[in-house]
C-alpha cells in the first residue's frame, strides 16, 4: 500500500502539480467549458442531463486520459526514467496502478468539479430561487459511473498502446485513432442490436447497458495491462 501511495505522490508531482503555470491551462480550460460556459448557456436545462450533455461528461475526462496516459508510460520510457524505477525495490504493480489511479482520478475529478461548478452557477445565475439538483437522480449516478468506466477504459487501453509505442507522440496518435474506432464500433454494435430491444429500453436502462458493456471491456483491458507491465518485458523493450 505504501508503494502505491509513493507512486501516486510521484505521479501527481511529476504530471499534475509542476511548478509551471502552463500545467494549469488544460484543467482550467476544460473545467471552464464543462462547469461555466455550457451550464450558463443551457440554464436550468443543464440539470436535466440530456444525451448531448452525457456525451460531454464522458468525452472531457476521456480526452484528458488519452492526453496524459501516453506521457505517463511511453514518456517515462522515452525519458529513460522507467529503467531506473525498475531497478529499485518498487513493484511492477505499484508502478502501474499508481499511474492509472492518478491519471483516472485527475480526469474524472475534473468532470466532477465541472459538474459541481455547473450546478452552483446554474442555481445562482439561472435559477428561480429554489435549489435544483441534476435529475433524474439515477441517470446522474449512471452518468458518473459511466464517466469513471470510460476513464478506466482509456487509461488501460492507453497503457497497452504505450507499452508498444516507441514515443509519446506515437502512443497519442494510436490512441486518437483507437478512440475513433471505439466510437464507430460502438455505434455499429448498437445498430446491430434488435431495434425493438433498443426502443424498449428507458434512458436509464440504456445507460446501464452501456455501463455493463464498458465494465466488461475495462476488466479485460485492465487484466491485460497488469500482465503486460512486467519488469522483464519492459527492460527488453
Amino acid at each position: 500500500m505504501s508503494d502505491l501511495l509513493t507512486m501516486m505522490w510521484k505521479e501527481s508531482k511529476d504530471l499534475l502539480f509542476q511548478r509551471r503555470w502552463s500545467a494549469w491551462i488544460l484543467p482550467v480550460l476544460l473545467v471552464g467549458i464543462l462547469g461555466v460556459y455550457l451550464p450558463l448557456q443551457a440554464g436550468l436545462q443543464w440539470l436535466e442531463l440530456s444525451p448531448i450533455e452525457i456525451i460531454v461528461i464522458l468525452w472531457i475526462p476521456f480526452f484528458v486520459i488519452i492526453t496524459f496516459i501516453g506521457d505517463a508510460i511511453a514518456g517515462e520510457r522515452e525519458r529513460h526514467t522507467l529503467e531506473t524505477l525498475l531497478a529499485s525495490r518498487i513493484s511492477d504493480r505499484a508502478i502501474l496502478l499508481g499511474k492509472l489511479i492518478v491519471t483516472v482520478g485527475y480526469a474524472w475529478g475534473m468532470a466532477l468539479v465541472g459538474l459541481l461548478l455547473g450546478l452552483v452557477l446554474v442555481n445562482l445565475f439561472r435559477g428561480h430561487g429554489n435549489w435544483a439538483f441534476y435529475h433524474p437522480f439515477d441517470v446522474f449516478l449512471e452518468a458518473l459511473a459511466l464517466s469513471l468506466l470510460c476513464c478506466v477504459l482509456g487509461a488501460s487501453a492507453g497503457v497497452l498502446i504505450s507499452l508498444r509505442s516507441a514515443t509519446v507522440r506515437q502512443a497519442q496518435l494510436i490512441l486518437s485513432v483507437g478512440t475513433l474506432v471505439l466510437i464507430f464500433g460502438g455505434i455499429l454494435a448498437l445498430q446491430a442490436l434488435p431495434a425493438n430491444f433498443v426502443s424498449s429500453l428507458s434512458y436509464s436502462q440504456f445507460l446501464l447497458l452501456m455501463i455493463a458493456a464498458i465494465a466488461v471491456l475495462d476488466a479485460i483491458l485492465l487484466g491485460l495491462s497488469l500482465v503486460s507491465f512486467q519488469r522483464s518485458r519492459l527492460i527488453l523493450s
Partner: peptide
C-alpha cells in the same frame, strides 16, 4: 534491488520535478 542502488546508462531523473 531493496539493498542496492543503481545509476544505469541514463541518469533517469524526473526533469519536471
Amino acid at each position: 534491488r531493496a539493498h542496492s542502488g543503481a545509476l544505469l546508462e541514463f541518469a533517469g531523473l524526473y526533469e519536471r520535478m
